[in-house]
Computed example of a mutant assay.
Amino acid sequence: MRLESPKASLIISVYKDVHFLEQVMKSVELQTWREFEVIISEDGDNPEMKEYLQHLNSTFPIQHLTQEDLGWRKNRALNRAIKSAKAEWLVFIDGDCLLHPRFMEFHFKLSDKNSILGGKRIKLDENTSLDLIEGKIPIGKMNHVIIKKFREISRNGGQFLEEGIFIEPTGILGFIPKMRKMRNLKGCNMSFHRSAIDAINGFNEEYKKPAVGEDIDLVWRFEGLGYRLISLRNLAVQYHLFHKECWIEQEENLEIMKRNQKVQRFVCKDGLKKK
């Protein structure tokens, strides 16, 4: 599909998991608001990923950006995606998070040049993830499933279940999303205007390990330049598919952040532009 002037760019960070991306793209096709392009930001160059995207029959225009696999360089990949984006409003997700059908609607509906929008995600248990992947549970029925099986999903390893419940803002419970706040960003569920990320010079490529540099580091830098963080909790809902997670120590990343905070370096040196 051709969309000469998309109103938003959905940037999806991926590494090697084509199977999960396939499920994510199915949820993208269900979006109620559709005036956006899709950018697959791949931190690597997987032939299987390339083949899948070449044969993907999508109703959205898709850009696929790759780079040599030299270890974790997600921030570099994200900066390249920002430069390639055709839209001014940029939405970021990860390639293992399925989207509620109204996810993009709220990321654009509440967009504001002076605000950073952030939501969270439910971490599904293995059984519910498989049911979603196999189509046994339509994404539109997830509210009912989460409420009905809240204890079961939690007992089986699901986390942050309250974040997986979409609340209609014009309904009787519409006051709840307005009450919920965000203190930090999740790199898998955030959006902002191009001018905002330009102002802090993009993602800091000084970080060479996952986490902190791709989201937490952004918050204090955005706020240091006067941007405010707006919550999309229970509006821009997403479902994190179950997989084994490899936790790494964060001391190195935290030290980088603390060092920059000490000198109030809101505009990073190694970002969209190299200073």
Rank of each mutant, 00 (worst) to 15 (best):
53 L>Q: 09
45 D>N: 15
43 D>W: 12
73 R>V: 05
59 T>H: 15
60 F>M: 08
69 D>N: 12
57 N>Y: 10
20 F>Q: 10
83 K>R: 12
64 H>E: 01
69 D>Q: 10
39 I>Y: 11
27 S>C: 02
25 M>L: 15
77 A>T: 03
63 Q>W: 07
80 R>D: 13
60 F>N: 09
82 I>F: 14
68 E>L: 10
73 R>Y: 00
64 H>D: 02
42 E>V: 01
69 D>S: 04
81 A>F: 11
56 L>C: 10
27 S>I: 07
68 E>I: 15
46 N>C: 02
50 K>M: 02
41 S>V: 12
57 N>R: 06
38 V>N: 12
85 A>C: 05
85 A>N: 02
40 I>C: 07
73 R>P: 06
51 E>Y: 08
33 W>C: 03
49 M>N: 14
33 W>I: 03
32 T>W: 03
35 E>F: 14
52 Y>L: 09
22 E>V: 01
60 F>W: 04
61 P>N: 04
78 L>H: 00
75 N>C: 12
14 V>D: 13
46 N>W: 14
44 G>C: 14
77 A>C: 02
55 H>C: 14
47 P>D: 05
18 V>I: 11
47 P>W: 05
55 H>V: 08
41 S>E: 06
21 L>A: 09
55 H>I: 07
24 V>Y: 14
83 K>M: 14
37 E>A: 13
42 E>Y: 13
79 N>E: 13
44 G>S: 13
